[in-house]
Design a protein around this nucleic acid. Structure first.
Lengths: 154, 154
DNA sequence: GCCTAACTGTTAGGCTACCTAACTATGAAC
DNA sequence: GTTCATAGTTAGGTAGCCTAACAGTTAGGC
């Protein structure tokens, strides 16, 4: 984390390779999201609502923004679009009248499920062309990438 | 690749996890690119020009677009910005008067080097907090991710 | 040779998702 | 019961992508 001291060359090389892989993966994700009724941003938000929502009867706007790594007005904007599409609902927070709680509608739940399934099928098709060793290597790295993401989003 | 037959459940689960990791990584990349003089799109293009450019005295606009996974007008737009910033140069192709060859200027070369170094240092800082096993797992997966990207961009 | 078809890149216009700044309304502290 | 902080919305602007329409260049068929 300390940028002032010279970093290990091996670490820097890994960092570069990882960044490169992510950079290319962005186009992959773009490709994957191109043929959908739901944009990447909207699907991300719906998915987050599905994961975190039921617990407390909805997710607050600020929390949504924080979870997605965007600012609050950007979250508001997306929420309004989802609401207009009938996929999400905004309700006043009973405990804090300033706050708003966002929940998925049944249609939203169905939409995220079907969009997810479609994308997973495409991705599974790609993965099926890999060797077993490759798939194992990928599976082993996913938790690590998760930890990296958690570190940076913290 | 065949979406019509029911996919292996394990494969679908891996596909979902991988997509999830990529989805989160997008925010990671955004964070990494936020504190820069160069946008992610511009850095991508500069880097591509550095990798592919010297060979043939420049890269053609169509090729740039194809390499970056965008359409030709989008590439033109970015190239013009880079040109205005003094980082790239457009020259007529001696062999085909329709074509344009794009090359990096010295300033462009320096810019990509410094932007890269800065981002690598940040990423290396994050990676340094991982265990050796985690780093090994990540390193092992990068070539696989590269193959996946190549498959989808082909 | 020329005329047509194919190709390369630019221009024009529009969209989505993000941002900052300014505002409203509620809650909390003292 | 002011005053200060917090939650969210609104307004206005930007970057990066797209499609459609265009101009110039090349290549083939006759």
């Amino acid at each position: 984390m300390n940028a002032s001291e010279p970093a290990d060359p091996g670490l820097l090389a890994l960092a570069e390779d990882f960044r490169e892989a992510l950079r290319h993966s962005i186009y992959l994700v773009r490709r994957l999201d191109a043929d959908g009724e739901l944009s990447a941003a909207q699907l991300s938000m719906l998915k987050m609502l599905m994961d975190a929502g039921p617990a407390a009867g909805g997710v607050r706007v600020g929390e949504i923004a924080r979870n997605l790594g965007v600012k609050v007005p950007s979250a508001t904007e997306q929420i309004i679009k989802l609401e207009r599409a009938g996929l999400a609902r905004r309700e006043p927070d009973p405990d804090d009248s300033r706050a708003v709680r966002v929940t998925l509608t049944d249609a939203g739940l169905a939409a995220v499920a079907s969009a997810n399934e479609r994308r997973n099928t495409v991705m599974a098709g790609v993965l099926s062309s890999l060797s077993d060793e490759d798939r194992a290597a990928l599976a082993a790295a996913l938790p690590v990438i998760g930890r990296i993401n958690a570190t940076l989003l913290a």
